[in-house]
């Protein structure tokens, strides 16, 4: 049973989701350590799929390991590394292990990563992948071959409210809903005005789509500059960077900025929760959650 689905579909509760750190070395001990840190605060946590086009432990195996350690995974699948057959087997394999929250994304290009020599796949795009997932959840593979019983997927997707063409992003949210998405995790957005326009528009056009904006806990102006320069589709306004740069305590100032963005995001129409990416890996996550009036569950 998906807690994420239960909360989003049958309650008015806010949901909090996070990004599970990529696993390279460290084995199960690394999974256990991260799971213990995140479990008290989050309803579900993303098992990413080679984020930013860097190879790591796979999405499916990470999701299984997370589940073994008490976290509810949202398994991401990106279209960059897998064709339609592999995407479907990822989903079926996840279902085999009781993983039901599936989020489908187009994904960064191979050139965003450390192996830009790789062949990009993109056999299907994010919206097509969402529709394939819905087909499976209603009892058949893309080919039409039956799956009985059908896997009980709760399907999600990602959208970027902060990238051009801004007004079209709302139409694209509708498109994802029509393809089969129930919830949308949004890309980290440092432009509150853009996020607000998107959420207002989406809440009106697609009221059943659950929106989950994202914020990132970072350490300094340097981290903001990095995101601005290196992460496709994220723009950090110069004024925000200047504000952190000129602060006597950058750590504290960027924390406050993130808290302001989070509170603003949670106040917007259509918003049913918040996604948090923690790049600080210190005790500020607990502080952040309590500043958002969250109570941990142990």
């Amino acid at each position: 049973m998906s807690v994420l689905r239960e909360k989003l579909e049958h309650t008015d509760d806010l949901v909090f989701t996070a990004e599970f750190p990529s696993i390279d070395g460290g084995g199960m001990a690394a999974v256990e350590k991260n799971a213990a840190r995140l479990a008290p605060w989050f309803d579900a946590v993303n098992a990413t799929d080679n984020p930013a086009a860097h190879a790591h432990a796979s999405n499916t195996t990470t999701a299984i390991a997370m589940k073994m350690h008490g976290l509810e995974p949202i398994m991401q699948i990106v279209c960059r590394d897998k064709n339609r057959l592999a995407i479907q087997s990822d989903m079926m394999g996840a279902s085999l292990h009781g993983i039901t929250n599936i989020s489908l994304l187009t994904g960064d290009d191979v050139t965003a990563g450390d192996e830009p020599q790789a062949r990009r796949v993109f056999d299907v795009d994010g919206i097509q992948a969402i529709n394939i997932a819905r087909g499976m959840a209603t009892g058949s593979y893309l080919s039409g071959r039956k799956i009985d019983p059908a896997p009980d997927f709760y399907i999600g997707a990602v959208e970027n409210a902060g990238a051009p063409p801004f007004d079209y992003r709302i139409q694209r949210a509708l498109k994802k809903y029509r393809a089969g998405a129930n919830f949308l995790q949004l890309q980290i957005c440092y432009h509150p005005d853009r996020l607000e326009a998107f959420c207002k528009g989406a809440a009106e056009l697609v009221p059943d789509l659950k929106l989950i904006p994202a914020v990132a806990l970072v350490k300094s102006a340097k981290s903001l500059n990095f995101m601005n320069d290196k992460i496709a589709g994220i723009d950090v306004p110069a004024a925000s960077i200047a504000r952190i740069q000129s602060a006597s305590d950058q750590r504290e100032e960027v924390y406050q900025l993130t808290l302001e963005l989070a509170k603003h995001a949670l106040s917007l129409p259509g918003v049913r929760g918040l996604h948090i990416t923690d790049f600080r890996h210190d005790d500020s996550l607990a502080q952040f959650m309590s500043d958002l009036a969250r109570v941990p569950s142990y």
Binding site: D109, D125, N160, A163, P164, K175, A232, G233
Partner: peptide, 17 residues
């Protein structure tokens, strides 16, 4: 489109479009 998307744009569009 370098990603040959049939349902774009993706989320990676730059600030200048």
């Amino acid at each position: 489109c370098p990603k040959t998307l049939r349902n774009g744009p993706c989320g990676g569009v730059r600030e200048n479009g």
